[in-house]
């Protein structure tokens, strides 16, 4: 069962060793009622396969899109979702909280 964060990191290592482009997204800060605690991971590969979660499914789509850019150019990014943010309405962080997510490539 791959639901613990480290099993997710194990998968990230295995995927990279297979030669896939891989990014790791990590929740680094939360405000209000955020669905997943700080430290939660989402691992994404270049074909948009993913494991884990950084929210209850609300912003994963947007994070995966961002991760593809990170896999492409190798530059880590900090992204933020919240109710005050227009994109948050689009991707729907419906819980009313705010989260900051760090996305980095596995080199």
């Amino acid at each position: 069962m791959r639901s613990t964060d480290t099993d997710i990191l194990k998968a990230a290592e295995a995927w990279r060793r297979e030669g896939r482009g891989v990014a790791i997204a990590t929740v680094v800060e939360t405000w209000g009622s955020a669905p997943r605690p700080v430290g939660s991971h989402l691992v994404i590969d270049e074909d948009t396969n993913f494991l884990g979660s950084v929210s209850g499914g609300c912003v994963e789509g947007a994070v995966i899109t961002e991760a593809l850019d990170v896999i492409a150019d190798g530059k880590p990014r900090m992204i933020e979702f919240g109710v005050a943010d227009e994109t948050a309405w689009q991707v729907g962080l419906s819980c009313g909280g705010r989260i900051k997510i760090y996305v980095e490539r596995v080199d």
């Binding site: 480290t6 990191l9 194990k10 060793r17």
Partner: peptide, 14 residues
């Protein structure tokens, strides 16, 4: 993240 670092992290956990 360097792969070697990720690998070390996973090794500590194991």
């Amino acid at each position: 993240m360097r792969l070697s670092l990720l690998s070390d992290l996973n090794e500590e956990r194991a």
